[in-house]
Amino acid sequence: MTDLYQKLLMEHSHHPRNFRKADHANRTAEASNPLCGDRVALYVELEGGIIEDISFQGEGCAILRAATSMMTEAVKGKSTADAQRLVGLFHCLVTGQDEVESEELGALAAFGSVRYYPARIKCATLGWHTLRAALEGKGATVPAD
């Protein structure tokens, strides 16, 4: 019954990684969910098309904190193209639109059961939408789903 709030997620929620403001960030974006007031600010240091550093701040529920924390770990050191691809895969995973190869997602596969709680999809994707906005150079975004 608690498959949504697995140990790994709760651990990230309680101890989010890269939870700081990055000093050398050259791409930033913010987003909020007006329904619950949750918000996330993302800081990306992009060098030659590679995400050299990424961090975030904000406040929100356990799903948002864990998803954003694990996202920063997953995309650090990746090219923008690979990161964008991962944004798409994660979106498919949590909405259940397409079957996603869990191998590509690694530990992120833990978010698969979000699809059974549609009201919470936005919590899982808010940080990821913000990443896409930061990479595309859009300062602020409100996710569509």
Partner: peptide
């Protein structure tokens, strides 16, 4: 605890409440 997380865990037990503003 965030009210939305509380609401979701309650929902897992069939308990329907509202969480939000």
């Amino acid at each position: 605890l965030h009210p939305h997380d509380v609401g979701t865990v309650l929902d897992m037990d069939g308990v329907a409440i509202r969480a939000g503003h």
